[in-house]
């Protein structure tokens, strides 16, 4: 299929440097859905909104703006696959577009590296593009499936920074603006042939953000552990996310939770792009699922 939509693919850190399968899957699966993702050369960390925002918001604005300008120079909108990156790249873009004082301040810094923020592009999360029927939509996602994930019970972790704070956000599909009990990701999971599963406090944070994972790991893991208890209660084969940092917290976090709290869940955690890849016929090897800390085997046996 010829690509109807082209985006500069902003990678961030954890996807390319810890879960490269999700990067590979994003590029491959998008192509089948009419989206071409081209490299955003020279992009850096978004930078991490918790760490940089806490230290000095002005640095956060300027560093994120540099990444946005790279896409402006390509005259291409940005697509990305991480909620944390979305917070930095989308929100700084939005703030700079609407606040002249802030934008002048940022441009003063960017001038020292011969760059200028113009506010000429938009930023999107891949999940929102997949759901938006003007771009892809649930029906087209369903039509692209060659290996339905039949019989698999999959729960969704939405994460925080794509949809919250709701007051600031703007989405083509208004369903995404529901931050209390959304179901649009469940629709996307259902489109793959799997059974989406609801659970207690599904909108709760993974606990990793705001620098807390680095500052007080036991505190951060305790928040993730609460979600894992709630997931265990309803019985799921896998948890899916749209944020590599949440994924890291739930995947590697389960190993740390076992060490620190002595409880074991063995719950496979997959980025939605990885799930979509499996449903479109990519193999576990194509997705480097062996890099996951928690083995995806039991889940794979069910769906392959």
């Amino acid at each position: 299929m010829e690509a109807k939509h082209k985006y500069a693919f902003y990678l961030g850190c954890i996807a390319p440097n810890r879960y490269p399968g999700s990067e590979a899957a994003a590029i491959k699966t998008s192509r089948k859905l009419g989206i071409e993702l081209v490299p955003l050369k020279g992009a850096s960390c978004c930078p991490a909104p918790g760490a940089f925002g806490s230290i000095d918001l002005n640095v956060w604005y300027a560093m994120a703006a540099r990444n946005i300008v790279l896409a402006e120079q390509m005259k291409t909108d940005i697509a990305l696959l991480c909620n944390g990156c979305y917070k930095s790249i989308w929100e700084v873009n939005h703030k700079l577009k609407h606040n002249d004082e802030l934008r002048d301040g940022v441009n003063e810094v960017l001038k020292t590296i011969d760059m200028e923020y113009k506010g000429s592009i938009n930023v999107y999360h891949l999940a929102e593009l997949l759901y938006d029927k003007n771009i892809v939509g649930v029906d087209k996602v369903r039509d692209s499936v060659t290996n339905p994930l039949k019989g698999a019970r999959i729960a969704v972790h939405y994460g925080c920074h794509l949809i919250k704070p709701r007051k600031d956000r703007e989405f083509g599909a208004t369903e995404i603006l529901d931050t209390e009990a959304p179901t649009w990701m469940e629709e996307l999971v259902g489109a793959l042939g799997a059974t989406p599963v609801e659970y207690r406090q599904k909108m709760q944070c993974c606990g990793a953000g705001g620098g807390v994972r680095g500052y007080d790991i036991v505190h951060a893991l305790d928040i993730a552990n609460e979600k894992l208890i709630n997931l265990q209660e309803v019985g799921v084969d896998a948890l899916t996310d749209i944020c590599p940092f949440c994924q890291l917290q739930f995947d590697r976090g389960q190993i740390e939770i076992e060490e620190k709290f002595g409880v074991k869940y063995n719950l496979p955690v997959l980025h939605y792009c990885e799930l979509l890849g499996l449903a479109q016929g990519m193999s576990p090897q194509d997705l480097a699922l062996d890099l996951h800390a928690i083995s995806c085997e039991p889940f794979l046996q069910k769906v392959l």
Partner: peptide
């Protein structure tokens, strides 16, 4: 990845921004 990891010529620009502050 095709980020600053491959295109290291972008790193001095990042350092300039951080040094600015």
């Amino acid at each position: 990845p095709p980020t600053t990891h491959t295109y290291k010529e972008f790193i001095p620009g990042i350092q300039k921004i951080l040094d600015y502050y």
